[in-house]
């Protein structure tokens, strides 16, 4: 990228430059406007919301809507459930994903080649439509309406993570493994003491993709955890439509609560999120 600034004072260049900023600012306003309406509305009382303009400031900071959303709307419970599911799914994915990648990437046998191809074929299957027949299996395993149904699907059908681990592992030189073998290390030892520590950047990428993916997933919890006590952020928010259908200020508070964790993570890990999201798209 050419960062060296040369001042071009010609009029057309200035107009061109102004147009560029105008275009970008317009785009950003399109993103920000709907969010600002939600933020302002979330502090208004019901009467105030009905009578004031969408862009008018609330008369005072009123946190009642947040209280309703957190407690009655079960968003707090949703955050807790989401976190539990994310933690167990991430642990499961990292353990199974790195083990699979290690064996498939490092041992070249008929078995490992077959497994690798099986995973690559599985990548093709469109996941939402698959639920038509996955549902029966979850049912038969007696996992319907349990958190385990979601966790096991997030671990068992996450082929993108395995793919990321394999990609990353293929760039790590085999000579490290070989020198360890010369020193008499077993494969288990190589996995734990060489491969796992070297995979740390890939693990970080997978964690980011998984966090965003699970936090935002709607159909898996909606389909397999209908109980209100098992609501996650997505489903708790979805259930706002019924009881609070006319009380948008409460729905707004719920939306803001739901966005804050995402925004916090985005602002702190921006650089990693950009690269993580791109490597997570290998599937597409």
């Amino acid at each position: 990228m050419n960062e060296k600034v040369t001042y071009n004072n010609s009029l057309s260049a200035k107009i061109w430059n102004a147009l560029k900023y105008a275009f970008l600012i317009f785009g950003c306003l399109l993103v920000i406007f709907p969010l600002v309406v939600v933020l302002l509305g979330s502090f208004k009382t019901h009467k105030e919301y009905l009578t004031t303009e969408v862009f008018s400031l609330p008369a005072k900071m009123n946190f009642e809507n947040y209280k309703t959303a957190f407690v009655n709307g079960k968003v707090l419970l949703g955050l807790k459930n989401t976190l539990i599911i994310i933690v167990f799914s991430c642990i499961g994915t990292i353990v199974t994903g790195t083990m699979t990648a290690f064996v498939v990437q490092r041992f070249n046998s008929i078995l490992t080649r077959a497994v690798k191809n099986a995973f690559l074929v599985a990548m093709l299957l469109p996941s939402i439509s698959m639920q038509v027949t996955v549902f029966q299996i979850i049912n038969k395993l007696n996992l319907y309406d349990t958190m385990m149904s979601n966790i096991i699907l997030y671990v068992g059908t996450d082929i993108v993570s395995i793919y990321i681990f394999m990609q990353y592992l293929s760039q790590i030189s085999v000579s490290l493994d070989e020198s360890a073998i010369v020193d008499g290390a077993s494969y288990i030892k190589i996995y734990f003491q060489i491969i796992l520590p070297l995979l740390r950047p890939a693990i970080a990428t997978v964690l980011i993709i998984k966090f965003v993916g699970i936090y935002n997933n709607f159909y898996t919890p909606q389909l397999y955890m209908p109980s209100e006590e098992l609501g996650v952020v997505s489903t708790a928010l979805y259930r706002f439509i019924g009881p609070y259908g006319a009380k948008w200020e409460i729905i707004f508070a719920g939306i803001i609560v739901c966005i804050i964790p995402t925004l916090t993570i985005f602002l702190t890990l921006q650089k990693y999120i950009y690269s993580g999201m791109v490597s997570g798209a290998v599937k597409e």
Partner: peptide, 15 residues
């Protein structure tokens, strides 16, 4: 792109 799909949908349902 990172936002929860339910949140996005509700925002535009109101919009």
């Amino acid at each position: 792109y990172l936002m929860n799909g339910v949140a996005v949908s509700l925002i535009f349902l109101n919009f």
